[in-house]
Amino acid sequence: MLAEETHRHDHAEPETQQEVLLRVSGLKTQFRQDGRTVTAVDGVSFDVRRGETLAIVGESGSGKSVTAMSILRLIPSPPGEIVDGEVLFDGKDMLGLSDEEIRKMRGSEIAMIFQEPMTSMNPVLTIGRQLSEPIQVHRGGDRKSLLAKCVDLLRKVRIPDPENRVKAYPHQLSGGMRQRAMIAMGLGCDPRLIIADEPTTALDVTVQAQILELLKDLTRERGTSMILITHDLGVVARYADRINVMYAGRIVEQGSSGDIFKHPKHPYTLGLMSSIPRLDQPSGTRLTPITGQPPDLSNLPSGCPFHPRCRFAEDRCRAERPPLTQVSDQHWKACWIDVNKP
């Protein structure tokens, strides 16, 4: 794919070079259902550098969660299948690993934090047991040292009274506390990459802020990289260094947080920005929504999948799919149109 080829060259720049921890190239994940094939992720390429937080932004069905699950090979197969692409973690080919090897990576090198801690935890095991399991599997240790480590982890995620909370069951903790315990589970083996999939969507705003601040502190402290998957542009602005905007299984815009928010180049990104009410803008201004509905992935429009909802669309957009092309140094877009042209 042409776009990805040019993308690679981007990283040769010496000033901006930062060591790449994860490189995803041309990732394509499909699901087969009732004889139909749905391409949930369609040729996605991006890097995650050491110590940075990369946000993947998109609406339901954009492929942001499937991208994350594909990296860890957590796609249920069947019906899902990673049909193309490469995922390199610290140079290691994740898609080529044996089941045994990938199990060793999960939880120890790459940890995942899910949206709903109640359903992602085992209700019949204590918090301590669930915390210690991955550590025992990946790092070993006796009962006493594991318990000490668990208490220590709970203290790190600022759960009060950790000595007693290790003995609690998930239902005995509040939503915010459960999410903290999930983060503690993710951090247990000192992973180098955390994938957080809508980690605070189910929580109240004041708790959301506490949890995200905690994740920020912990990743900064340890130099951990993070992929933050969210639909909340405010959260992205506060916590992300770089951003991938996804639509219909593809990255439509990629750039630094400043690029994306200050100089959005894709009509979809622009549309998102103008459709949300903001606290820092005058009240009572009318919102400009994106018209139409999100596309049906099993029956995508021709050319650019966004064209039926795009106010800039031209003939070319209906016929040809735009590749991801460079706008400036670190900024890429998949669009034929120059949205800044008067």
Partner: peptide, 8 residues
């Protein structure tokens, strides 16, 4: 607690 969608 509410983040504003503007990094600056």
């Amino acid at each position: 607690a509410i983040p504003i969608p503007d990094p600056e």
